[in-house]
């Protein structure tokens, strides 16, 4: 009798549980379905220009100019890549861009480390004012300083040289800001202990601060490399010699030289994007960690 009563109680409990849980579970599933639907929509929107670039690279020119556009090429023309490669001096553009981006990234990392450390750990006259001036330049629309900058480059006789393409990008105020925030977050005790052990500023920077800031340095490096690789307006203004031009300028020149051949232009753009996608995939973990560790805190 007792066991029958317990069985009946347990049955009732199970039924109550079932009745009590199916509604929240359904709501949870509906919520998850909505989240996945929104994420898919967002991801498709994000991917669209990249997808459009890659698929247009395979289309014929008639199909590339068709409205409404086709989402998948009716015929996959691999020859567009060869034709794009041969239509303009792309090997030269690639070499120029790689050299320009690598040199400016290396320069940026060196100057950023030194300046960020100075702003975070040094005490010198006018430090705050100088830092405010630095930060103020971050708000400066580039077009505002374009013409005076061009005149300075002309005066220095750097027109049509790699110096004009590299030197102005070897200082990154954003990078200095990011790294300064990281150096400020290092415990003061770490520095004091190093000083007691006879460590100079340089030893501390080289042996302690720089190894600890590798993710932040990779972040600065990737930002600098991406900025340099994708730069268009500045190289267009400070170079006129095709031998000096980087890949992004090459893309526009290709458009004007070969008419509106979007398919070949997108083939060239796809080739141009591949190295930076590969680089980002390799360094992605460090890159995200770098942003998270500096935290971009004010």
């Amino acid at each position: 009798m007792t066991s029958q009563r317990y069985r009946s109680l347990a049955k009732g409990e199970r039924a109550r549980k079932r009745k009590g849980t199916w509604q929240p579970r359904l709501l949870r599933w509906a919520g998850m379905a909505l989240i996945y639907a929104l994420l898919t929509l967002g991801a498709l929107t994000m991917v669209f220009p990249f997808y459009w670039m890659v698929t247009t690279a395979f289309k014929s020119i008639q199909e590339a100019l068709m409205f409404p556009p086709t989402l998948v090429p009716t015929e996959w023309l691999w020859s567009n890549f060869r034709e794009a490669w041969e239509a303009a001096p792309f090997p030269r553009y690639f070499a120029n861009t790689t050299f320009m981006a690598s040199a400016s990234t290396l320069g940026t990392i060196i100057t950023t480390v030194l300046a960020a450390y100075a702003f975070a750990r040094m005490r010198f006259f006018g430090k705050t004012v100088l830092f405010i001036l630095f930060m103020a330049t971050m708000m400066m629309p580039f077009e505002v300083i374009l013409i005076p900058n061009f005149l300075i480059i002309k005066t220095l006789k750097w027109y049509n040289t790699f110096l004009a393409l590299i030197v102005p990008w070897t200082a990154s105020v954003f990078g200095i800001f990011l790294l300064r925030q990281f150096y400020l977050s290092l415990p003061k005790e770490l520095f004091d202990a190093a000083v007691i052990d006879g460590c100079s500023h340089f030893r501390f920077l080289w042996n302690v601060a720089v190894p600890l800031s590798v993710p932040a340095l990779i972040t600065v490096g990737i930002f600098s490399f991406l900025g340099s690789w994708n730069s268009l307006l500045w190289p267009l203004i400070v170079t006129s010699n095709p031998e000096m031009r980087p890949i992004q300028v090459g893309l526009t020149a290709f458009q004007s030289e070969a008419g509106s051949y979007y398919n070949r232009m997108m083939a060239a753009a796809t080739l141009a994007v591949l190295p930076i996608v590969a680089m980002f995939l390799v360094a992605q973990k460090q890159f995200v960690e770098g942003i998270a560790r500096t935290g971009l805190k004010g």
Binding site: A118, M122, I147, P148, V167, A171, I176
Partner: peptide, 24 residues
């Protein structure tokens, strides 16, 4: 030593002042 380090930061300061601030 601080003055020495400030000289190390001078290239960056120089680039920012000459190519960003002066043009502005």
């Amino acid at each position: 030593e601080n003055a020495f380090w400030f000289t190390f930061a001078v290239p960056t300061v120089g680039i920012v002042l000459v190519l960003f601030f002066a043009p502005f």
